[in-house]
């Protein structure tokens, strides 16, 4: 595995500046809808006309993937699922998967976590129990079954180390030292630790260094992992930031209604994405 960088976090102006840093063709690790998603940056990626992205769901994807797929920004998706939760099917994902417009690599949640954890440790793979006998195993290009070398007759599955080009998510706070606070959303730390570059939008800037605070430090991702941050107040909208604001369920219902058709989706883009939005 090639070395990952020790970062000195850069501070950028906003979501559009972050989106300009993410190159076409990048593999982007993204969290599920219940973990803060950098929706303002996702909208900015659509505005800048991002192309050929590969989305990695850690471990599943929702609204952000549906919008990027519908807007033609995506070439490939690896995920355990794409869902809008209570708002129903992710219709642009469904349409793209059924037409073959986007290549889908199906996974299962803990195999994605385990692949990223292998990269955290700098090892080429890690084993995981279960999964054997699922058709996911024969369809996935990077999973192999071996015999447990410590005993006999014990097949076990290996997850190859996953190194996304980019980790992208939203945080409640960033501080002046470049650390970001994500609280209990540990999957965000896993993506950050395993990725070549990590871009984080944040709600509010805290003065000083959160790692000096015993209560905040355990929920922090150290700046060593963080390439750049940018302020984006209400940047997860219409999704939520636990403790700050909730999911805008009515907006998700509106999205799900419009995204049923290509024309409705375009109307959504025109109204809420292509011009900068006030949340």
């Amino acid at each position: 595995m090639s070395a990952l960088p020790a970062n000195e976090t850069r501070f950028l102006a906003g979501a559009d500046a972050l989106a300009r840093e993410i190159p076409d063709g990048a593999c982007i690790g993204l969290p599920p809808d219940y973990s803060p998603v950098a929706m303002a940056v996702v909208r900015a990626l659509v505005r800048r006309g991002a192309k050929d992205l590969k989305l990695l769901g850690v471990p599943v994807l929702g609204l952000c993937a549906d919008i990027l797929i519908g807007a033609g920004c995506v070439r490939e998706v690896e995920t355990s699922a794409v869902t809008l939760g209570e708002a129903g099917l992710a219709q642009r994902f469904t349409a793209a998967a059924e037409s073959g417009a986007v290549k889908i690599i199906d996974a299962t949640c803990p195999m994605i976590h385990t692949g990223l954890q292998a990269t955290e440790k700098g090892v080429p793979f890690l084993p995981l129990r279960g999964v054997l006998g699922s058709d996911l195993v024969k369809n996935h290009p990077d999973w192999k079954t071996i015999d447990n070398p410590y005993t006999t007759g014990d097949p076990i599955l290996l997850a190859k180390a996953i190194v996304p080009d980019v980790a992208l998510f939203h945080a409640r706070w960033a501080d002046e030292a470049g650390n970001v606070w994500v609280g209990r959303r540990g999957e965000l730390a896993t993506i950050a630790h395993a990725s070549q570059a990590c871009y984080v939008s944040f709600e509010e800037l805290k003065r000083g260094d959160m790692l000096e605070d015993e209560l905040l430090a355990p929920g922090c991702i150290s700046s060593v992992y963080v390439t750049a941050v940018a302020p984006a107040p209400r940047g997860a909208w219409p999704l939520g930031v636990p403790g700050a604001y909730g999911i805008d369920d009515a907006h998700l219902q509106l999205y799900a209604r419009l995204a049923k058709t290509a024309a409705g989706f375009q109307q959504y883009l025109d109204e809420f994405v292509l011009q900068p939005v006030s949340a």
Partner: peptide, 13 residues
């Protein structure tokens, strides 16, 4: 196409 397998392939075991 349906949403996907989620954690089923692991949790079922």
């Amino acid at each position: 196409r349906f949403p996907g397998s989620f954690g089923s392939a692991y949790m079922y075991f």
